[in-house]
Structures are given as structure tokens and as C-alpha cells.
Amino acid sequence: MVPTSAYLILAIILFGIGTVGVLITRNMIVLFMSIEIMLNAANMVLIAFSKALNLVDGHVIVFLVLTIAAAEAAVGLAMIVMVYRNRETVNVDRFSLMKW
């Protein structure tokens, strides 16, 4: 029997890696994927607690989060394509100005 706290620690480590990724990466697409890792870490906490409390509500919330992540990825990638079309780079350091 794996204790719930083991899953929580795994989720914390994944969330920390996602945070580091958001802070250190310069590629917009990898930055987006780091945000997805943070979302997945939160999902793992929800699933771990829904098993610990024997409630299936957490699964429903995780399903909704997955749907929202899909919508976010679609809109975010469309924005990346548009930014690339205007600036010809996806390096976030080049976006320090709103207008050039």
C-alpha cells in the first residue's frame, strides 16, 4: 500500500520542476509545457485525495481540468503562431516591449 503522502511528494516535485521550467526556459513552447506539468501535479493531488477519502468527485474535477488544459493549449499555441509570424522568434526575452 503506497501512502497518500508519497503521491503528494511526487506532485510537489513535479510542481517544483514546472516552476523552475517556467522561470528558466526562454522558449515559449517549452514554457507552456512547464505550465502543463504544473497542472498535472495538481491533478495528481486531486486523484490521491479522492482515493484517500473514497470520493469520486476529484476525478470529475480532474476531467474538467484536462478539458481546460486542452482549450488553453489550443489558444496558447495559436497565440505563439501569431507572435512568431510578427516577431519571427519564440524567445520570451525578445518580448520585453509590447510594441517595437
Binding site: 500500500m1 501512502p3 497518500t4 503522502s5 482515493k51 484517500a52 477519502l53 473514497n54 469520486v56 476525478h59
Partner: peptide, 17 residues
């Protein structure tokens, strides 16, 4: 959280999830 984890987690119903 270990109190929550060890108390309930062992008795998960059939067909859970």
C-alpha cells in the same frame, strides 16, 4: 496528512474510478 492516508485508503470500494 498521514493520518488521513492510512485510515481510509485501504478500504476502496469495487469499481472505484
Amino acid at each position: 496528512l498521514d493520518s488521513v492516508a492510512t485510515q481510509v485508503a485501504d478500504q476502496v470500494a469495487d469499481g472505484f474510478g
